[in-house]
């Protein structure tokens, strides 16, 4: 084992890609849903496709360090 500075442990791949993978899945659901039908399915696409932007806005403006 090489010597590593004790400044915090490294995150697992699951931890790193957990939220991005979830957002990508939600995005694909939204992209497909508006193709299926109008009404509810349109509204579902608006909400799901807006979610990544809401998450980014939260991280930039409201997240505590």
């Amino acid at each position: 084992m090489t010597m590593r500075p004790p400044s915090g442990s490294t995150l697992s791949l699951q931890r790193i890609f957990g939220v991005p993978l979830l957002l990508a899945t939600v995005t694909v659901i939204g992209l497909v849903s508006a193709l299926l039908d109008d009404g509810f399915w349109d509204a579902l696409s608006w909400a799901t496709l807006a979610l990544p932007m809401l998450v980014a806005a939260w991280a930039i403006w409201f997240r505590r360090e």
């Binding site: 400044s7 915090g8 490294t10 995150l11 791949l13 931890r15 790193i16 890609f17 957990g18 939220v19 991005p20 998450v55 939260w58 991280a59 930039i60 997240r63 360090e65």
Partner: peptide, 20 residues
């Protein structure tokens, strides 16, 4: 870019923006 995201975020929780 997605591949490189992993090494860059190895020690940073999701959504970190180091404003300072």
């Amino acid at each position: 870019g997605v591949v490189l995201y992993a090494p860059f975020m190895r020690k940073l929780p999701f959504g970190t923006v180091r404003k300072d």
